[in-house]
């Protein structure tokens, strides 16, 4: 059984159809890259998978581990293992990052019927993960993403991914706003999470990221559909010749 199966998905936002019958199958252990021009619907797809309100699904279905994902509330999806690293992570003033991580982790564990982490166990785990990602302790005491640089915000997303151990990670343009060094650190963090039990969907505009996180499959999206899929060499081809050749196919 595939981990994620998106079948002929049609989505509207405020009366306008954005996704026009999109299909995508992701198996456990695989890393998929999705590339495509601005406005082609990449973020929309990631939001619909995560269950963000405001999108109307007018056709098709999404199965996650064989279950109907669209029937689950967004927090249920999260506790079942869907993780979305946002293109634009928000700031939550007054809520310390450490408090946020703990509240979220325990909420997920509770929803799965697991016991909550004790304070020492939790602190140990966070410190371990933070050290691996070069995240200083004082960043964890600050408000969630408040005053974080673009790179720090993205690293904070990877930190959460490492902490929550989801089975499906969707990374929406995690490379935007990162300098070369920060990109490498974040990509190493993501690579460390690759496992036969976990799949990743990496949304990006640039081949460069895929040098660090090498995908098994590359999809090209255009105008709300997947118009071509191939191996990692497809990304190189795109880098050389642009999206124009696929626009007609859409």
């Amino acid at each position: 059984m595939a981990l994620l199966e998106v079948k002929n998905l049609q989505v509207r936002v405020e009366e306008r159809e954005i996704l026009h019958g999109l299909s995508l199958t992701v198996n456990k252990g695989e890393v998929h890259a999705i590339m495509g021009p601005n406005g082609s619907g990449k973020s929309t797809l990631s939001h619909v998978i995560a269950g963000k309100p405001g999108y109307e699904v007018t056709g098709g279905e999404i199965l996650f581990k064989g279950e109907n994902l669209l029937e689950m509330s967004p927090d249920q999806r999260s506790s079942k293992g869907v993780f979305l690293a946002f293109q634009y992570p928000v700031e939550i003033p007054g809520v310390a990052t450490m408090t946020f991580l703990r509240t979220a982790l325990n909420a997920q564990r509770k929803a799965r019927g697991e016991s909550e982490f004790s304070t020492p166990d939790f602190l140990k785990k966070v410190r371990e993960v933070a050290a691996r990602l070069n995240i200083p302790q004082d960043m964890l005491r600050r408000g969630v993403n408040v005053g974080f640089s673009g790179g720090e915000k993205k690293r904070n997303e990877v930190l959460q991914m490492a902490l929550f151990e989801p089975s499906l990670c969707i990374l929406d343009e995690m490379d935007s706003g990162l300098d070369i060094d920060a990109l490498r650190v974040a990509a190493d963090g993501v690579n460390a999470l690759r496992s036969p039990e976990r799949a990743m969907v990496v949304i990006t505009h640039y081949q460069r990221l895929l040098n660090y996180i090498v995908p098994d499959v590359v999809h090209v999206m255009s105008k709300g559909r997947v118009v071509k899929s191939g191996g990692k060499e497809l990304a190189l081809e795109l880098e050389a010749s642009g999206y124009a050749q696929f626009e007609d196919a859409a």
Binding site: A50, G51, K52, P53, G54, S73, P74, D75, S78, S79, F83, L84, F86, P89, V90, E91, I92, F100, T103, A104, L105, A107, Q108, A111, Q160, F164
Partner: peptide
Amino acid sequence: ISEDVLFYCIQRGLSQEE
């Protein structure tokens, strides 16, 4: 109250109320 901030929290496992 920002819907985007609420959704961020909910995506990380919190219920709407939490």
